[in-house]
C-alpha cells in the first residue's frame, strides 16, 4: 500500500514567539523552524510500515513557501521516498490545506494518509478531519497505535477518559498523537541520500484551487502574563497562606 504524509514547517516548539512591535503579525525573523512535532511522528510511522514491507512507498507533502522544502528533506532523510511541495507564500488555513491535500490524494491515490493531530503554531486540530470529509473516507484521530490488516486499519485513539479502538475501512485518514512512536533522528548518510530523492513542485492553481482566507485576523495580542508570586519558606506557611490569603482552602 501507498502512504501519504502531510508535514508542516513550524516554529520550533521550544521557542516562545512574540508579536511584531506594531502587533500586525508574529515576529518570525531568525526563529528556528522545524517540522511540526506531530508530523515527525506521522513520518516515523509511515517509514516503519515501509520497513515492515506493509507500505510500498511513502510520499511526503508540504504546503507552504520554498523553505518548506527543508521540511520535506528532513522527512526524506527519515526514510520517506518522495516529496511534493505545493507552493504558496500566502498564509493558509486548514480548510484550504485539506483541499490541496485532497487534490494531491486524487492524483497520487494513497491507501492511507497520515497527518499530525495538530500544528503547534495555529493549534487548529482540523486538517485531517477536513481532508477525510472531503475525500469521503474514514478518519481516525489522535492515534496512539495503528495496525494495518488487509483492507482495514485498526486505530487506538487517545480520548477523554481513556482510549478507544476503531476499525477503519481503507483508504483512510489518520491523525497521530504523541505516544504513537518515538521519531528517529536522521543519520548523516541518510541526510546525504535524501538530497538525491525527488521533490516535485506544484502550485495550487495546478489543481484549480484558489487559496482563500475565510477568517480575517482582526487582532493579535500577547495575553497578560502572570506575575511570579512569592516563595514560601515551608509547607506549613504554604497551607496557611492558601487558607488565609488566597482563600482557596477551607
Amino acid at each position: 500500500m501507498r502512504i501519504m504524509v502531510a508535514v508542516k514547517r513550524v516554529v520550533d516548539p521550544n521557542v516562545k514567539v512574540r508579536l511584531l512591535a506594531d502587533g500586525s503579525g508574529i515576529d518570525l525573523t531568525g526563529l528556528k523552524m522545524t517540522m511540526n512535532p506531530f508530523d515527525e511522528i506521522a513520518v516515523e510511522e509511515a517509514v516503519r510500515l515501509r520497513e515492515l514491507a506493509i507500505a510500498s512507498e511513502v510520499l511526503v507533502v508540504s504546503i507552504g513557501p520554498d523553505k518548506a522544502t527543508e521540511t520535506l528533506r528532513t522527512a526524506l532523510a527519515m526514510g520517506a521516498d518522495r516529496g511534493l511541495l505545493i507552493k504558496t507564500d500566502a498564509p493558509i488555513e486548514p480548510l484550504s490545506v485539506a483541499k490541496l491535500l485532497r487534490a494531491a490524494a486524487i492524483e497520487e491515490k494513497p491507501d492511507l494518509i497520515l497527518l499530525g493531530k495538530q500544528a503547534i503554531d495555529d493549534d487548529c486540530n482540523q486538517t485531517g478531519q477536513m481532508l477525510a470529509a472531503q475525500l469521503g473516507w474514514a478518519q481516525g484521530t489522535f492515534a496512539s497505535n495503528l495496525a494495518v490488516e488487509g483492507d482495514a486499519v485498526t486505530v487506538t485513539r487517545e480520548v477523554d477518559g481513556g482510549s478507544q479502538t476503531v476499525r477503519l475501512v481503507l483508504p483512510a485518514v489518520i491523525t497521530v498523537d504523541l505516544r504513537l512512536n518515538e521519531p528517529r533522528y536522521a543519520s548523516l548518510p541518510n541526510i546525504m541520500k535524501a538530497k538525491k530523492k525527488p521533490i516535485a513542485e506544484r502550485q495550487p492553481a495546478d489543481y484549480g484551487i484558489v487559496v482563500e482566507q475565510r477568517l480575517e485576523i482582526v487582532r493579535l495580542e500577547e495575553p497578560a502574563g502572570r506575575l511570579a508570586g512569592i516563595k514560601v519558606g515551608s509547607a506549613t506557611e504554604l497551607v496557611e497562606r492558601l487558607r488565609s490569603e488566597a482563600g482557596v482552602l477551607s
Binding site: 482540523q126 486538517t127 478518519q139 475565510r214
Partner: peptide, 20 residues
C-alpha cells in the same frame, strides 16, 4: 476529543472554516 474529531468534519462538509 469527540468535539475536536467531529466538528472539523462537519465544517468541511459545509465548506466552512472551523474556529477551534
Amino acid at each position: 476529543t469527540s468535539g475536536k474529531s467531529v466538528m472539523p468534519r462537519v465544517a468541511a462538509l459545509l465548506d466552512v472554516m472551523q474556529i477551534s
